[in-house]
Nucleic acid binder design. Structure first.
Lengths: 234, 234, 234, 234
DNA sequence: TATGAATGAGAGTTCATTCAT
DNA sequence: AATGAATGAACTCTCATTCAT
């Protein structure tokens, strides 16, 4: 109530709450996906739901803010990559970094694979555009990248691998590494052999099966069970 | 659960309703994804919800039944492909056919990209396994496919492209054609150039934006908009 | 689940609504039994259903809360009865009081005659145990009660009369008074000896608990599980 | 279709189905109580639900029919009891027999403890009235029964013990034996006088009838009627 | 400004009862 | 007369979002 209202009232608290919320959301979404309730996020953040709405307007905006945080790091990575003397390996490293990130974060995958809000998408895009296109440009100059490759192609490559990572998350989280070379080769003239073991057919079934759990929401009374402590086994 | 087709031939009207239900489900799920409610499906089919439950037991089983129908066609395609004198173009044609199918069907994409129920998934898998692996075998014999390619690789390729198709569904539904050659090349030694136009940056934003519509479930405003004509105001 | 009364004193409006809810539940359950829907209770309380669920988690918990309120009074009665110089008339008065209460409250009868949730049942039991067993002890000392009478016998007596009250509720609400003397006589030294083993206190809890299973219908997702194994082929 | 339609067409089949239904209902209700669905009963009987409705009109009537069957046996018992040279032990034996019956039959207990349909109740009453009142009369003549004991008192005694049996069903099914002597003692000249008016026979019918209202859940019309006056405008 | 209680529109699912076959 | 498919109201419970405190 009575704060020194001279400077900028509450700013510090507000910023702190915002941070707590984003951090909590990142954790909760990472574990349970975007379907987690905002109540849970707020609880974990130690603030009221109302606060979440004051800061983010709706659930998706919060997810976007999480994205924003991640993007900040990713942009830094991209900028660092620009300094690498070998732009191609820098690009590859950048992609790998993002995929590793996504591998452990279900919510991030969901956001990455389908952002809804144009605004936040723009933001992401704008922020990444400069460093990434510079990276691509440098690759092209180095003769490592074909001329017809555009930025969104890189985005699509990422999405595709992300989809693989998502499906295989629980059983073969690194499966994307099997397909990355192929896609990269598609951006250059070379075609490398497939490495690593593929999902066995059995694993594929199980992966596919367990994957969607909780995503086709409401499909089963699973919901409740699903939520309690994230159970696995049976 | 699903009506037993062995013991008895099923009454004519029941069969008709079942057909109506599957057709409606296919349409509704195609447009709005699996999150559409069974009430909506039943309404569109012109039957009561109870009827849906009599035939399918639960929402997911209905989705599986829809899938089943589609798979029947797909399996037929795969078997036809086996007869093609050129196995490689047969494989490519098969993949293209599936993607065309998925391009227009959001629900199918969702099911394809992550089926939840092991049972139906197995069914799909089992049904597809024989014709597809035969196709792969023939490709290998023809020297068109690398030895380390297994069936699940084909599944992953499909998934990846499906993800692209999903994101671009509303604006550049054929975007997957841009990446199919790359992935195919990854299954052979050759690396072809990228063809077609990529998503423009603008298109990418909008596509990404509209994509998720209704997927981040509970995103009410979206739902409502999506359901236009359903509203009741307040 | 039930609002935590330790950490914080609960907001004023919340407390008010909780009170309204319990009052409404008591009234609705009293008139229509536990099968009345939570929607109806909420409507009568003048709050949304969601509020009911915020406070009670599920229908049965609400019933338990209502019970809790009643029990508080009953426990007070029991304690007051302990102070009566004439323990026997105190016991009789206590029983009469409980029956009068139950005569006008169908829901209470249902809860009394078969509580389903072990937890709340325990609570009731625990709370009543001390004052009532003290009352019995004093009766025994006064030579008014046989030695082989245990607490659960009193509970059974209550239940039996409650059943009579239940059946006669609308037409002869006091019918239980006709049989109370008989049962009381059975507890005095003049009565016939009690044969067989009574319900142990533990058994009493479990019996009461498991008894109701599936009766307060819809109260839990028990339903489905309950039915499994019942299906006769197809 | 083509049966010999000379004698009485279908009569045999109909009777057989009726029998199957009652038997199935008895078994299903015995195990799961009256809340079991008619579909389950019909399935177990091996007939369609429609057939059940043709024969019984509604779920409750079927329960009543089950009762009827039981009553037939009980009446026989009662009549046999009348022949016993020792009327008192005959009465006791009769009560014990009924309780043993109820101990293993949850549905029967539910029906016994609250019959809803006046019509069937009447039937029961009428059938039992003669033999039981004769039995009571003989006991009175033998000086074993007090003068103020009426038939409904015996019914109430039965109900009370039935309630005990119900609660203790899973753990101490014979618990009622503990209280039977007490209640019997209450009917002998040694017991305390019965106070108040018993249920008149008429009242007994009506009480029993209205009691169950809304308990055999799903009895739709009742529900609706019951709810009127609940609405709080909007 | 922060809080968290309140809201209420759904969602999935069940089942007594009706009615076309 | 029998069948069992169809119906749809009712029920419990969830959760994004709003709003009084």
């Amino acid at each position: 109530m009575t704060v020194d209202s001279q400077t900028r009232p509450m700013r510090k608290d507000a910023a702190r709450n915002r941070g707590l919320l984003v951090a909590a959301a990142r954790d909760v979404f990472a574990r349970r996906g975007l379907e987690a309730s905002l109540d849970d996020v707020a609880r974990q953040a130690g603030v009221g739901v109302g606060t979440a709405y004051r800061h983010f307007g709706n659930k998706y905006d919060l997810a976007a803010a999480v994205m924003h945080e991640v993007i900040a790091g990713v942009v830094a990575d991209a900028e660092r990559a620009c300094l690498d003397p070998d732009p191609w390996s820098a690009l590859v490293g950048f992609l790998e970094g993002m995929l590793v990130l996504q591998t452990t974060d279900r919510g991030l995958r969901e956001v990455m694979m389908g952002v809804r809000d144009p605004q936040s998408e723009l933001e992401v895009h704008d922020q990444l555009e400069k460093p990434v296109s510079r990276l691509l440009e440098r690759c092209r100059e180095a003769g490592a990248l074909r001329d017809d490759v555009v930025m969104s192609d890189v985005g699509c490559v990422l999405m595709m691998l992300c989809q693989v990572a998502d499906v295989a998350a629980d059983h073969t989280p690194d499966l994307w590494r099997r397909y990355l070379p192929i896609l990269l080769a598609g951006l250059t003239p070379d075609g490398p052999p497939l490495v690593g073991t593929p999902l066995s057919d059995e694993a594929f079934r199980v992966a596919s099966a367990s994957y969607q759990t909780g995503r086709v929401r409401g499909a089963r009374p699973t919901d409740a069970r699903d939520r309690s402590g994230e159970q696995v086994a049976q």
